[in-house]
Design a protein around this nucleic acid. Structure first.
Lengths: 256, 256
DNA sequence: TTACATTGCGTCACATTGACACAATGAAAT
DNA sequence: ATTTCATTGTGTCAATGTGACGCAATGTAA
């Protein structure tokens, strides 16, 4: 979006977007054995923010989320899951936005649509780190991956939204194709384990983990091994998509 | 809400409510060993609808849901859980409402706020059947419990919303105090089992169910037995609230 | 050539689960 | 009063799953 488009956006927003509603996305990636989140560094402010946006008046809400995802990552066909609505009246601070925009040389009336109350719909997304091309929006100076264990200060209630997304991801780990969406096509067992450990925030026994995950019958071991690594080279695995989806439909977890 | 209030509501709605957003509630109860849902029979139409409402401009979304719940059931302090947003542009059919209102002698302009697009936030609630005082709203002629296995035709996408709520309830069964909120204070083991069977839509072995549910240590067996029943009188149980909440925090289900 | 971190494979005790047996209870039928 | 029988309380047993380890194989780095 060029400068001119931004002006149009600010002026015409009230016309083209559904009022009162916004979208915020928590985009997870996995790299260097760490769980990452894609964040935007705001212009003229120290805070960061989640990628977000608004919904066109005739647009499906899920489609709007996909559009935002595409704009920030370059990716289509992303695993996307709506997880919570944040609807406290005081969640946004209109003065904050006014100040930030003013520093950027933009002054708007007090009753401008951007300053009104927004109820936001939280989505979390799972993407393959290496495919992403992080792209800032009009409110941000850059867009980059941040480690979930080393987060900067976030604007408004975005930290709360992020925490809730992480909590949801944890609960979904056994019922959704989390590994499949976060890892590259070929990966090693230690990588997969580290992913589970990071999301669950606990250590797992290497041998028991392998036994359990293999018992699901959703992995295929390849003939290759990982190359260019120190120590013993681990085997590479891929997800057996067919049986993975079947297993997830039936539900992987225990229970009744 | 009296007749006059209804007129006010229709006229002033655009002023007092947050635009574009609505709330729909799937209220579950348990009675006669059946899972029930509280539904409204619409005026001048054959369809039924879920209890719903709108959000005041300065009202917390969760509070709005509680308000709706209170209006339809008479209850405060209800277990309430937001589960999904339904945001397809074509989910509501403005002609449907127009027709229904016209039959009721009410004609509104085509651009009336009630006919605009609404994104709705779905909540499910768990209530104790016997405490509920079903109360219709202005769009409905009566309000009553319906068996989830014998549902009438619902307006718009309310059937889809209900199904999603049921699916969510199933997933939450081991992680939320479902039994605690749906059953009376004192209940029998067969009652609790029937509740689980109904929600999960499958039969469970009586003896294994008892063993497992008792192993959680969340139930207290009382000295009393159920009276006035045919055959052997079953013991009565209550939830041990303290250990129940503790167990739910840790998560009852298996997994990692 | 050796050291050593890491990987692949396996063992064992114990807990959990699914399937089922049997006696006890008490209202309803005779 | 006695019998019937659906229902409840308790327990058994084999199969399976889980947690805690041991040990040899691998292959880079010392």
């Amino acid at each position: 979006m060029a400068r001119k488009d931004f002006k149009d956006f600010i002026i015409e927003g009230a016309e083209v977007y559904l009022p009162s509603l916004s979208i915020d996305c928590v985009i997870f990636g996995f790299h260097d054995n760490q769980l990452k989140v894609l964040l935007l560094k705001m212009k003229k402010a120290t805070q960061w923010s989640l990628p977000g946006g608004f919904i066109f008046k005739n647009e499906d809400v899920d489609e709007a989320a996909k559009r935002v995802l595409k704009e920030r990552t370059g990716l289509s066909q992303i695993f996307l899951h709506q997880f919570n609505v944040f609807g406290q009246p005081r969640r946004s601070d209109s003065n904050f936005h006014r100040r930030v925009l003013k520093k950027d040389g933009i002054e708007l009336k007090d009753d401008h649509w951007l300053f009104r109350r927004f109820v936001t719909i939280g989505y979390y997304a799972l993407v393959e780190y290496s495919f992403v091309n992080p792209t800032p929006d009009n409110f941000s100076e850059f867009c980059m991956w941040r480690d979930v264990n080393d987060l900067p200060e976030l604007m408004m209630d975005h930290r709360q939204i992020l925490d809730k997304a992480l909590q949801t991801l944890r609960q979904h780990l056994n019922a959704h194709p989390v590994g499949y969406n976060l890892l590259p096509v070929k990966f090693t067992m230690p990588q997969l384990q580290k992913l589970y450990e990071t999301i669950l925030n606990k250590n797992l026994d290497r041998r028991n983990f392998q036994r359990k995950i293999l018992s699901y019958g959703i992995l295929k071991r390849l003939k290759e091994v990982k190359k260019g690594v120190a120590h013993k080279a681990p085997y590479l695995y891929t997800f057996d998509v067919r049986s993975y989806e079947k297993a997830l439909n039936d539900g992987l977890q225990g229970g009744w």
